[in-house]
Design a protein around this nucleic acid. Sequence first.
DNA 1: CGGAGGATTGACCCGTTTCAACTACCGTGG
DNA 2: CCACGGTAGTTGAAACGGGTCAATCCTCCG
Lengths: 254, 254
Amino acid sequence: MAVILPFSPKPLPGDPPPSLPALREACANCQLRELCLPLGLAEADLDRLEGLVGGRRKVARGQALFQSGDSFRGLYAVRSGFFKTVVASEGGRAQVTGFQMAGELLGLDGIGGDRHACDAIALEDSQVCEIAYADLERITHDLPPLAHQFHRILSREIVRDQGVMLMLGRMSAEERVAAFLLNLSQRLQARGYAAQALRLRMTREEIGSYLGLSLETVSRTFSKLQDEGLLRVQQRELKLLDLAALRQRVEACG
Amino acid sequence: MAVILPFSPKPLPGDPPPSLPALREACANCQLRELCLPLGLAEADLDRLEGLVGGRRKVARGQALFQSGDSFRGLYAVRSGFFKTVVASEGGRAQVTGFQMAGELLGLDGIGGDRHACDAIALEDSQVCEIAYADLERITHDLPPLAHQFHRILSREIVRDQGVMLMLGRMSAEERVAAFLLNLSQRLQARGYAAQALRLRMTREEIGSYLGLSLETVSRTFSKLQDEGLLRVQQRELKLLDLAALRQRVEACG
DNA sequence: CGGAGGATTGACCCGTTTCAACTACCGTGG
DNA sequence: CCACGGTAGTTGAAACGGGTCAATCCTCCG
């Protein structure tokens, strides 16, 4: 899911002094600009957006950006790095509900209950832009198109989740893995990376958790698709050799 | 998920003539009042809310309130009756993603893409209150607490979906069925019905689709739980004889 | 009263899980 | 620089849960 929200970072403590012009251009220079800038928002509103972003925050690999039960403060846009979100049941069972890459949003789950409903864990050293929810409410009030954009983001997340449900409920292991890889590929492509070559940021176990499969089944399915010439696996380095064929595997869903 | 939104119906064509006072009190008299009225909204704002609801609409059993691909016009609050939402993949595979009862919202999936991403089918003759999205945007702008409330609703839907994912990814057939029944029971109870006795509005096949199981497995699981004394099944009439034990089945998720 | 759709139950089969052994890789410290 | 240990990944064999197919029953409604 490509996130469309006006997020941009303020300089980190170590960065050059935040001269006003620099701040002013933070969003404009942000690599995530196309991903973050809402459609149809006037350039003149950019400075309003600058004020929205409370700060940048680093999250080391393995660390939690927030955890289930943490009181909700605001949203986070991934600026660099890679995250997973994990929900846990009372019984201690856990499931990965999503992977987030640059430009995608974290924390939407927290609005409803004033505390977060899942853990957000960095899978590599990452940076996020933070935005206090109170600020977001204020600016969406002042800029109605932004409110609309925000509703769209929330709605798209709901639609995305429904797609995951369909996958978990109806697809075979091979179809799930193929769908997962195609989704990753497509999101990477949207960020300017090659669609065929990708480095997995997560373990087989995390993939399996997301797909509702055991880590062994994920591994076996990779091997099988490799044997059939659809891709090449080398640890976490993947080459998707036949995107069309992968697509067929998924669409053969009837 | 209890929906908290200010929806109320205008009279149907067959209803007594819509005198202004009647309209004025439509929301106030609505049976869904506690479910729909946003927390902390001033009574004085009630008349604003009245104007929000574009109309009531009847949907006969088996008919679609909207279908995937329909252009998005607005949201619907179930006033009476029962719905299912179904997402379909290109390959023709379909999955029930949820069941909606009185007071719950339909159509949130449409905001993101300007067209609906699922079908909403009435499982019995139903009525919904319709609200045009444009009106909703206007009123949430004028009443910030309402905007907040709306965000909460969207966020809760995301959290709900994550719960379903966990169920589909990690739970056994028995756990899924138990969780499903407890969820139904809880929602019925919130509406003033008994928590133990319920009439299923959907077929075994629809339950199975929602739970990622075959209809036969659903049936077998009902029988098994009945044999163990946890419930009594008679076609679509259910008695939950031991809620605590059912809860244990679900929570034994580790 | 009869038919059709829904529900139940049984038998069998298959995909996935589980358990287990083994291998590859990476970072660390000697 | 290499040896080592731990983590991640692969692969095999066996067990099992749930799916599929099929027969039967129920019951609601025309």
